[in-house]
Structure formats: C-alpha cells, structure tokens
Amino acid sequence: MNEHLLGLEYCSKEEIESMLKAGFSFKEVLSRPIPKVPTLRGKTVVNLFFENSTRTRISFELAQKRLSADTVNFSASGSSVSKGESLRDTIRNIEAMKIDMVVVRHQSPGVPYFLTQCTDSIIINAGDGLHEHPTQGLLDIMTLQEKLGTVKDLKVVIVGDILHSRVARSNIYGLQKLGAKVALCGPPTLIPVQAEQWGVEIFYNIEDAIRWGEVLNVLRLQLERQHSGLFPTRREYAHRFGVTLEKLRQVDKEITIMHPGPINRGLELEHDLADSEFSVILDQVTNGVALRMAVLYLKSGVSTTEQAISQKK
C-alpha cells in the first residue's frame, strides 16, 4: 500500500478495493446516532487549500472530525503565501508544528508529489490542477457500487470539459482498474490530446453517449472557458452536450446521472434532472464523507478497520 494518496493512477486495484470497502464500513458509522469514532484520536491533520473549495474542504473536515482527529485549516488567502512564502517553506513550517497528515488542494499539478519530497507527513491529494482528484474518483465509484452492485463491465461516460478536469482523470484510472468501460463526451476542444491512450471511447454529442452508456458522470462546465474560445456559446453547449430528460427518454434503459458539483443548472444538466430519480448526486456527497474517512484512516497507519469501528459499539 502506498503511504500517500497522490492519484488513482498510482494505486493498485487491491488498494482501490480496500479503500472502497472501508468506505462502506464508515458509511455505517455515519448512520449511527452518534456518528463518530475515536480512530484518529491524537492525530493532527492539516487541510492545506491553496485553491478555493467549499465542498471538498468541508467533506474532508467532517471526515476528520468524525474520526476524532485534530484538524487545522489553512487557506492561501490571508496566509503567508500571499506574502510570498514558497510552498516548500510553508509545508516545512507547518510540519514543524508536529502534524501527521496533510490534505492538499493546489492549482499546480504535481504539488502533492512535490510535498512528499519536502516533508515526512502523509499527503492526501484533494485535487492538483488538472491532474487528479482521487477521493472524488473513489467516492464516484463507491456511489456506483452502492447503487448498481459492481462497476465491472459498467459503461460510464464522462461528459463535458475533460481537458481541465482532474475528476475525469481520477475516474478514468479508478473505473478502468475495477473493470468498467469508460467513454468521454465533449467538444474536441475540451478533450485532451491523445486521450485515446486511455483506451476510452470518445463521443462528440450527448445522444451517442447516452445510447452507449449506463452512467453519465457530468462535469461542471467552467464558464470562463468560453472566453478562451474553446466553445462558442453556452446555448450551443447546452444544446449539444447538455443532459435533458427528453434525451434520456429516447433510450429504453436505466441511466444513472452523477455530477461532482457545483451544478450549472440548465447548462450541463437540465433544471430538474439533478433532483430526479436518475440522479445519485446527493449520494455522492454523503458517500464523500465516508470515503474520505476511509482514506484518512487507511493512510494514517492505525490498526484495522474492524477494530477501529467496533471500539465504539
């Protein structure tokens, strides 16, 4: 087992399976009257967020609190970073305060690996640039397993801005390692060059993707991309790549809709679709906490899941 969680590309199938399994165990913990275990009591976790994030940070923070860890939040604005301190100095200073784990989000790809080179703490990647967002990939898979039993041979389409998506990369690696079939759907300008290296199908309109797939993992369209000329208008994007009830009804099969949030309603997803029976979007959010508990626990190096959880019972 890797010491850190840098990305699903670097995890074995077995590691991914053990994190998912632990995720389900922790989900049970969350359903108890007092959803808290002493697993990480005495451990200190720093949430080092150099990029704005509400959901992922709250999800990690809740996971830490449910595990009884001591948590500290560090955000780039108003910190020493805005005074010009280097990343290396920042991490070494934080480490000097005796911490065990660092959850990091940064706009530059490779920062989690960079941190492993300048600290002895355990590093959990909470999103590095366009590279990976492994806990999101894991919670997406967990949600699919929960609803559909297994992801083996499941056909999952990732829809939208693949080029700028760390969620897409983590999903591709994670799903494929567990035997799922993955396709990408989006305008060619938003699909990275040589995406075929991943052994994925590529669709340039949502109808084809819906005909092929059983799951649509719809990414958030970052609106500022429009100004860099990657697609003409929101209107045209919504028309060609937006998921609507009407388009879903054209096929005679059950389709599951996921979205990592926050949603642009009316753009990538039709207004009510996120709240429909197709959607597992809120399950993703719930599972996110359990899955992150699992990751923090497994990476912390404390005893086995069964023991950790049964202490409370």
């Binding site: 590309e9 490779g110 640039g129 366009l130 990275p192 060059v193 040589q194």
Partner: peptide, 15 residues
Amino acid sequence: NEGAMSTRLGVHGIP
C-alpha cells in the same frame, strides 16, 4: 510538450 504525457500529468501542453 503537448502529448500523451501532458494529458496524463494534467499539465497544459505546448503543441
């Protein structure tokens, strides 16, 4: 360099 590696690493490429 823009190519298979930049796509894997999530790094913007220079074509």
